[in-house]
Computed example of a mutant assay.
Amino acid sequence: MPKNSNQSDEPTLEPTEEPTQAPTEEPAQEVEQVEVRVLTNCQLGKANSITTLPAGSVKALQALGYIDAHPDAVAYAKSLNDTKGE
């Protein structure tokens, strides 16, 4: 049987499902930040400096001995930094 000039030897692929839309982006939630005292010279800063970290990181970094998040420790480090400039 002769081929029709509109037909091809290659099979055609038909979509099996509707194209999905990309999920809509939700606005980024703000992460709670905690001010902490750095206890040792490390990637977070110099000893007795103050830095701000995500709240979820504080517990682990305290357990490793890098920081102290107690308000008194932060206040002490701030007082040290205030007197260094005098």
Rank of each mutant, 00 (worst) to 15 (best):
D82A: 08
V38Y: 10
Q21A: 06
A69T: 01
D9C: 13
C42M: 13
L64C: 09
E30C: 01
M1N: 15
T20G: 02
S57P: 02
E17A: 10
D82Y: 13
P2Q: 11
S49F: 09
S79I: 00
Y76S: 08
R37W: 07
N41D: 15
L80Q: 13
E30G: 01
K84G: 14
E25D: 07
A69M: 05
E26T: 02
E17F: 12
P2W: 07
K78L: 04
T24W: 04
S79C: 02
L53S: 05
T12K: 07
N6F: 13
P27V: 00
S8A: 10
N4L: 10
S79W: 09
Q33C: 07
K78Y: 04
A22H: 07
D68F: 14
E14D: 11
T16W: 06
T40R: 11
P71N: 04
T40N: 11
E32C: 04
A60T: 11
V74G: 09
T12R: 08
V36P: 00
R37T: 01
Q29C: 03
N81S: 11
A28N: 08
K78V: 01
N4T: 10
N41Y: 12
G56S: 15
P19N: 07
A55W: 09
L13H: 14
D82H: 12
Y76F: 15
G56F: 15
C42I: 14
P11G: 15
P2L: 11
E86Q: 04
D72C: 07
S57W: 11
P54L: 00
A73W: 13
E25G: 01
P15N: 12
E25R: 02
S79H: 11
P27C: 01
P19E: 13
A28C: 09
D68Q: 10
V34G: 00
L13F: 15
S79D: 04
E32I: 03
V31Y: 03
S49Q: 14
Q7F: 09
P54E: 00
G45T: 03
D72K: 11
Q7C: 10
P23W: 00
A75S: 07
A75E: 04
E30I: 00
E26V: 02
K59C: 06
